[in-house]
């Protein structure tokens, strides 16, 4: 079972890879809408990547209002 720290790290690595950013350029507290400049379509793409990576379902209403990687990782952790 992953720890929350491991999950957070994997979320950051996956986001960096998806948006072609250096691996260490994202931090858990970053606002991903601001940091990545993404729109709703890209957010849903990211959600698909996360679900595929972690092998979970994360209903979009559970991440509505979430804008930082740390909280996103917590939501994922609760589904693992």
């Amino acid at each position: 079972m992953r720890t929350l720290e491991q999950t957070t790290q994997e979320v950051l690595e996956l986001a960096a890879r998806h948006f072609n950013l250096p691996a260490r350029s994202l931090a858990p507290e970053d606002d991903f809408f601001k940091k990545l400049g993404i729109d709703s379509l890209q957010t849903l793409e990211m959600l698909s990547r996360l679900e595929n990576h972690f092998g979970i379902e994360l209903p979009d209403y559970e991440v509505q209002g979430v804008s930082d990687f740390k909280t996103l990782a917590e939501r994922i952790q609760s589904r693992l």
Partner: peptide, 10 residues
């Protein structure tokens, strides 16, 4: 009833 988006695997 949830209006949620469902991924391709599901």
């Amino acid at each position: 009833f949830t209006g949620r988006t469902v991924n391709a695997t599901r």
